[in-house]
């Protein structure tokens, strides 16, 4: 694939113009993760003051909520950026331009990453300021966690965006709800061992589970589990391949059914 840097840059510019012109969109990037942080931060403060609470649980909860937001907001960033084109009835214009579907996917991934950095960086600093928790103390492990969670979020985003493209705005509720399916089985706030035995294989089939287990190992045991990160990466390669293939098939189906001209109405 010979992606054009110029076309990728054009799409980044398009979303940057949007963010710059709309302060509610900019504020929203930071607002929700901040609210999550405050709620869970206060909860973890209470835990840390409770002598019966295991040591390190406060920091674990804060890290979990921030990393969950990476996963959740990463997918929202991808899908919402796609939905901006749907809502502005611009999908047909893009599909009739030299922008190839694969380039469009790469552009959405880049925008999602930008939104994550813009939204989550202030939140991590707030965690340090308000609750004395420095997530950057994880070092390289944080990069591995962030990368793997972002990859999973983009794979999900590709499928959701493809469904919206093919089925219209009626499918856009998936953008808000699909990640919630992963929340209980990705073991964000608790270890896999807490789950019923029959559910544990399901949890281990999800890349985010490896990330959250790795996070707990790093924070509680002080160990960086590279094996867990590599397994997460391997699963993400599969998910991304499936997500990309699904998106391309759904684009093709949308072209066959003739829904692109009316998308957004």
């Amino acid at each position: 694939m010979n992606a054009s840097i110029g076309r990728l840059a054009a799409m980044q510019l398009r979303y940057w113009y949007l963010l710059r012109a709309s302060w509610p969109r900019l504020v929203e990037l930071i607002y929700w993760p901040t609210m999550n942080l405050v709620v869970w931060g206060l909860l973890s403060v209470w835990f840390s003051e409770n002598r019966t609470t295991p040591v390190g649980i406060a920091g674990t909860l804060l890290a979990a909520v921030m990393l969950w937001d990476v996963l959740f907001r990463g997918q929202l960033g991808f899908t919402f950026s796609f939905l901006e084109e749907v809502w502005s009835r611009n999908v047909a214009s893009l599909m009739m331009s030299p922008l190839q579907p694969a380039e469009f996917v790469i552009a959405l991934m880049m925008v999602s990453a930008t939104r994550l950095i813009v939204g989550m960086t202030p939140v991590t600093l707030l965690a340090l300021l308000l609750f004395g928790f420095n997530i950057y103390s994880l070092g390289f492990a944080l990069v591995a966690f962030f990368a793997n969670l972002a990859l999973t979020s983009w794979a999900v985003g590709m499928v959701v965006s493809g469904l919206i493209l093919r089925n219209g705005t009626g499918a856009q509720s998936f953008a808000f709800s699909v990640m919630m399916l992963l929340l209980p089985v990705s073991c964000v706030y608790y270890p896999v061992s807490i789950l019923p035995m029959w559910l544990q294989p399901v949890a281990w089939s999800l890349a985010p589970t490896y990330v959250f287990e790795g996070m707990r190992a790093a924070l509680i045991d002080g160990v960086f589990r590279a094996d867990l990160m590599l397994e997460a990466l391997a699963l993400n390669v599969v998910y991304l391949s499936i997500g990309f293939a699904a998106f391309m098939l759904l684009v093709q189906s949308a072209r066959q059914k003739g829904v692109l001209l009316t998308l957004g109405e």
């Binding site: 113009y17 949007l18 012109a21 084109e85 502005s88 009835r89 611009n90 047909a92 214009s93 009739m96």
Partner: peptide, 8 residues
């Protein structure tokens, strides 16, 4: 039938 992004 095809519009440009209205917010830009």
């Amino acid at each position: 039938y095809v519009a440009m992004p209205a917010q830009l």
